[in-house]
Amino acid sequence: MAETKKYARIKKASVDGVWYADKIGNVYEVDRENCVSILTKRGIRGLSSVLREDAELIVTEKRPAKVGERVLITAAYAYTGCPYKNGDINNVKTADKHGHVLVEEHSVSLLRREYEVIVNNEVKNEEADGMKIDLNAMGDRELYAHGEAVMEAIKKRMFQAGFRAAKQAQRKLAGMNSKKTPQARRDEIVEQAKTDVEELSNYGDGVRYETGTGSFATCNVEFVVNRDKRTVVALLKGVRTGDVYAKGIAKAAPDDCFNVRIGKAIALRRALGLAVPDEYLNAPQPTEVRVGDVVYGKYSEAYYQLWCEDEIGDVSYEVKIKEIVDGKYRYVGGGYDFIDDADLTIIDDSREGVVGE
C-alpha cells in the first residue's frame, strides 16, 4: 500500500502578524491536525500551527504517477534555471515504467523521487469536516498535542478578534474626527498639547535628563515665548547648576495661527528628544473668533476715506478681541468692528489669561 502524507498550502493569513503572513502559496508537511488548526513541519524551526481556515489540505501518495494525475513537487533538484520548485502542482501528460514523468507546465522531466501523487486537495476536506475528536480515546501524548494546538488556535482567534475590534474602533474614531469641524478638532489638539506639557514636565516638579556622559541631571523646564517671531523655546536647565542641558524650538509657519500651548508641546518634545505628533504640526486653522484672540483685519478703502483725512496708507490692523457683544467685536484698547462687515484672520488663538482657557 502506498505511503500517504498530508500537506498544508497557505491560502491566506486571516490574522495579521502570524508567522505565515508572508508565505502565501508555500506548502508544509502536516504533522497532526484537529478541527481548529493544523500543525506543520517547518524544518529546523520545528512545528508551527496554521489555522485550518487559512490553509488548503493536500493529501498525497508516494508512488509512480499515471497519465492525467496531478503531482506535488516535494523534493525538487535545486539547480540554476530549474523551471519548478517545491510546492508546485503539475499535471502529468506522459509517464515511463520507472515513474519518471513529463508534465504540461514545462518540458523538463520529473524524476520519481521529486514528486508525490495528489489523491485529494479539496479546500474543504470532507474527512476533516466530519472529524470528531474523542478525547477519552487518546493517549497522553496525543491529548497533550491536541491541547497545545487548540490553545494556540484560541490565542490566535482571540488576537484576531482583538485586532478586528481595534481596527473597527480606529475606523469609528477616524469617522468621528472627519465629521468634526476644523475648530472643534483644533480645540481638542490644543487641550491635548496642554496636557502633554503638564505630564512631560512632571507638573512643574522637574524632569530627569541624560547629560550625555552617562549621568542624569534634574532639570526645570523653562519656556521663552516670542510672539513677534512666533516662536517658543523650551529650555532644560539644571536645578543645581543652572546650566542649559538641552533646548527645543517651535516656530509657526507664516500662514499658520500661532498657539502657545501647541508651541510649548512641540518645543518640549524636541528638547527631550521625543517624536512630535503629526496633529501638532498640522493642526487645522481656527475658524471662530473668540475673546482673547489676536486678529488681523483690513479697513475697506471707503471706510478709510470717510474717517481719515490723510492719504490712504496701510489699511491693515492687528488687535486683540476684548469682548463680543451686541453684534460687534470690541477690541482691547478701544474700537470695534461690526461682525457682518469685519473680515478678520485669527493669527494667535493662545488666549492666555482668558477665564476658562
Rank of each mutant, 00 (worst) to 15 (best):
K93G: 04
V190M: 08
A169L: 02
H98P: 04
R171Q: 12
K23F: 08
V325H: 12
G334V: 03
Q170D: 14
V108Q: 14
G238Y: 01
E127C: 05
R45I: 06
Y296I: 09
D278G: 10
R185D: 04
M1G: 14
A253R: 08
G214P: 01
V239D: 06
K172P: 07
Y317F: 14
N177W: 10
I249M: 12
V15G: 01
A302T: 15
E198R: 12
D255C: 05
L51Y: 08
G81N: 10
N91G: 12
Q183A: 04
Q305R: 13
P83D: 05
V108H: 12
F223E: 05
K298N: 07
A55R: 05
Y209K: 00
V291M: 08
E301M: 07
A184Q: 13
S109W: 09
A252M: 01
G43E: 03
G248K: 08
Y336P: 02
G130Y: 10
V67I: 08
G81L: 03
I321M: 04
V36N: 13
R269M: 04
L39Y: 15
A145V: 09
S300W: 07
D88I: 03
D31K: 13
S48I: 10
Y303Q: 11
A246T: 02
E199F: 10
P284K: 01
P83L: 05
R63Q: 02
V18P: 04
E29A: 07
G206S: 00
S350I: 01
Y28Q: 06
T231H: 02
V233K: 11
T60N: 05
G162W: 00
V332G: 05
K132Q: 10
C82N: 15
V92A: 06
E288S: 03
A193L: 07
K179F: 13
Y304W: 13
P254A: 02
L274H: 04
N90T: 04
C219N: 01
I339S: 03
P254I: 02
K229T: 11
R330I: 09
I266D: 01
T218P: 07
V50T: 10
K180E: 11
S316P: 00
L143V: 05
I89D: 11
R227T: 15
T231L: 03
E323M: 10
W19I: 02
G356D: 04
K194M: 09
V50R: 09
I118W: 07
E126P: 15
V36Y: 15
V18Q: 02
E288H: 05
D31S: 15
V92L: 04
C308V: 13
A174S: 13
G99P: 06
E279H: 07
V289D: 07
G327S: 01
G25W: 00
C82A: 14
V197C: 05
V27L: 07
P64S: 06
G292K: 06
E222S: 10
N136M: 14
T241N: 01
D187E: 14
V289F: 09
Q305E: 13
R113K: 15
E152C: 09
K247L: 15
A234Q: 03
V117R: 08
I262Q: 08
V276R: 09
P83V: 02
R164H: 10
Q170F: 07
G46C: 02
A165H: 04
A250H: 07
H146N: 13
T218E: 01
G242C: 00
V224G: 15
K11S: 09
D340P: 00
I154S: 09
A21S: 11
V207M: 00
E3Y: 15
G273Y: 03
E116T: 02
S178C: 08
D129T: 11
K156S: 11
E152T: 12
R171M: 13
